[in-house]
């Protein structure tokens, strides 16, 4: 199957998964006890205003009727209006999504820039003091929650030394690069520790492989052996892992945005929870599921390019 066929197939596979997420969210929001109208308007709301709100939100119709209109809306990407902000949820999400995408994108690049060299150094000096130090760093990094790491960077680099802003975002793209650097570094460090640990394992395995010994024996320069043979083969499992980590990355973004007061979708999610704005929480979960699925698709494609053997499988 060609690459286009593969992508098409994976795109089709996204549909049932996202449909399942949508069904789950519907079940969660509607079938749990508690009347959202009362929660929104408070205990002292009049019966008339409660009835009006229920009608506006469609809660007075049968569950099956609600379910069908809901599925229809999700399929056409009309996710309803925010209950508290009276703006279409799609609009709210689209406004804030670019910031979150930029944050996670920067974090991924930074994570690779940190993880790949460290893993290389550790693997080439396997068992040595440097390797041990890097592995211990990884252990500490893996045990450090994102929000704590963010706070440490905030206290030292932003509040202490004043090198970076304490939070928020800037005016344009270039200013955003500066504002988002510290949050992205926070996310990147926790991602890098996971990547580094696994890339190191993969590199050590490849370094001991026969084709590497052969390449060295045949007199290829060290740099060529490492760059063309070792790194390329070790990158395949790393790219897979990077893809699998996208969930944690998005979860981390939710927390990082809260720590650094960044108006992205993660912050929107937390704010909506406290405001009990279910329409936004529901819409966001579905949109994030679609995005994560798309990243899986991307990873699948990149894997195929890195390792043509997988095309056949």
């Amino acid at each position: 199957m060609g690459i286009v066929g593969r992508i098409g197939l994976r795109l089709l596979q996204i549909v049932p998964t996202v449909a399942l997420v949508a069904v789950l969210m519907f079940a969660l929001m509607r079938l749990l006890p508690g009347d959202p109208a009362i929660q929104l308007l408070g205990d002292r709301a009049t019966d008339a205003s409660l009835a009006r709100l229920r009608h506006e939100m469609g809660f007075d119709r049968s569950v099956s009727a609600q379910f069908w209109s809901y599925l229809e809306h999700v399929a056409t990407l009309r996710l309803g209006d925010s209950i508290t902000m009276h703006v279409p949820v799609t609009r709210l999400i689209l406004d804030r999504l670019p910031i979150t995408l930029m944050l996670t994108g920067m974090a991924t690049v930074l994570a690779l820039l940190i993880a790949v060299p460290l893993a290389f150094v550790a693997a080439l000096r396997e068992g040595g003091a440097v390797d041990l130090a890097i592995r211990m760093l990884g252990q500490v990094g893996l045990s450090m929650p994102v929000f704590y790491l963010g706070l440490i960077l905030l206290i030292t680099l932003a509040a202490g030394l004043g090198w970076f802003p304490v939070g928020g975002i800037g005016g344009g793209f270039v200013e955003n690069l500066y504002y988002l650097f510290l949050p992205a570094l926070t996310l990147a460090l926790s991602l890098a520790m996971v990547l580094m640990r696994n890339l190191r394992e993969a590199l050590i395995e490849v370094l001991h492989a026969e084709f590497v010994q052969f390449a060295t024996a045949k007199g290829l320069r060290r740099r060529l052996v490492l760059g063309r043979h070792v790194l390329r083969n070790a990158l395949v499992p790393t790219v897979t892992l990077l893809g699998l980590q996208i969930g944690s990355l998005v979860g981390g973004a939710v927390i990082t945005e809260s720590v650094f007061a960044i108006p992205g979708v993660g912050r929107l999610m937390i704010d909506s929870i406290f405001a009990r704005d279910y329409a936004v929480v529901q819409g966001l979960t579905i949109v994030l599921a679609v995005l994560v699925s798309l990243v899986f698709l991307l990873v699948d494609t990149v894997q195929g390019l890195l390792d043509p053997r997988q095309e056949a499988a």
Partner: peptide, 12 residues
């Protein structure tokens, strides 16, 4: 696998 664990837990 598709919905980030944290996001799912937060939604619940």
């Amino acid at each position: 696998v598709t919905v980030p664990f944290l996001v799912l837990v937060i939604a619940i």
